[in-house]
């Protein structure tokens, strides 16, 4: 064995090298999984009724959690921000500041994180247990394309539902803020909302909604990928659900960072 070969072999046995290789392989696998989603999703016949069923499960059933969180978030954010603005004599800016913050950043990101936790883990666990108990194989021998029936419908549903949940979270959060403003003062509903809409621009709303489509896609993609490739056994199902939440949450922040850069490029923040 030459010296170079020896050094190479030594390097490839390092734990860091193995982890890097594993990370790159998984990234490539997830990318291919995403490409397959578009390929299978465009093939006829479309699984419309199952997609609607998933939209109901993913969207409607997540609404209470997203709504309550958004309401508390708007209320608390307002109460916490008031003293600082008061110090600068800018208390009247409170509705505008809170609403812009909620619409641009807090609403979409918090909604996406809640969905990554609730939806990502449930998709990961559901598909993982289906894989382990051979239900996916049973589906295939029943003449069903399991990728299309299980994966495409779930990714489509998360991609469509996370933006809707985010819009509702923004509205509920701003309403929470209105109540927060009125705890230590009296501001009419009309005045509050006129101040909110005076400062909210399309350049705040459009990028914010656009990025939630990507958040939803990422949450569905990771949940489905982890579940679909679950190892054998119940331990594997738990691991799939857990890693679906961790990776999806991390991806939400990475996508948010990219979205901010792109928005800055187009709108100049």
């Amino acid at each position: 064995m030459s010296k170079v070969e020896g050094k190479y072999n030594e390097f490839t046995t390092l734990p860091l090298w193995n982890e890097t290789k594993k990370f790159l392989t998984e990234t490539a696998d997830i990318t291919l999984f995403g490409v397959r989603f578009f390929k299978e999703g465009l093939k006829l016949p479309l699984e419309i009724s199952e997609t609607i069923n998933q939209c109901y499960k993913i969207g409607y059933k997540s609404l209470p959690l997203v709504g309550i969180t958004a309401f508390i978030m708007g209320l608390v954010f307002t109460i916490q921000s008031r003293p600082t603005l008061q110090e600068f004599g800018a208390e009247s800016w409170l509705p505008a500041m809170v609403s812009v913050s909620i619409v641009r950043e807090i609403g979409p990101v918090i909604t996406a994180l809640i969905c990554a936790g609730k939806i990502g883990s449930s998709i990961g666990a559901e598909l993982g247990s289906m894989k382990v108990t051979e239900q996916i194989d049973a589906m295939e021998v029943s003449g069903t394309n399991p990728f299309k029936y299980l994966v495409v419908t779930r990714i489509a549903a998360t991609t469509l539902m996370v933006p809707i949940l985010s819009i509702l979270a923004n509205a509920i959060g701003i309403y929470g803020s209105y109540l927060g403003v009125n705890i230590k003062g009296v501001v009419s509903f009309q005045l509050f909302y006129s101040q909110v809409f005076e400062k909210l621009m399309f350049s705040d709303v459009i990028p914010s909604i656009t990025k939630t489509f990507f958040f939803g896609f990422a949450i569905g993609l990771i949940g489905c990928y982890k579940g679909y490739h679950s190892d054998k056994g119940t331990e594997g199902v738990g691991r799939s659900a857990n890693s679906a939440v961790v990776i999806a949450s991390l991806l939400v922040f990475i996508l948010d960072l990219i979205a901010v850069q792109i928005t800055d490029l187009f709108y100049g923040l």
Binding site: S129, M130, T133, E134, Q135, D137, A138, M139, V141, S142, G143, T144
Partner: peptide, 28 residues
């Protein structure tokens, strides 16, 4: 033409017995 009985039965947990039996008919 080939039926397959899985070791774990592979019944769909989220469906009733009726829906389980109906599924292959509907899909095919």
């Amino acid at each position: 033409k080939i039926g397959f009985l899985f070791q774990s039965n592979a019944l769909y947990d989220s469906m009733t017995v009726r829906e389980n039996l109906e599924f292959p008919l509907r899909r095919l």
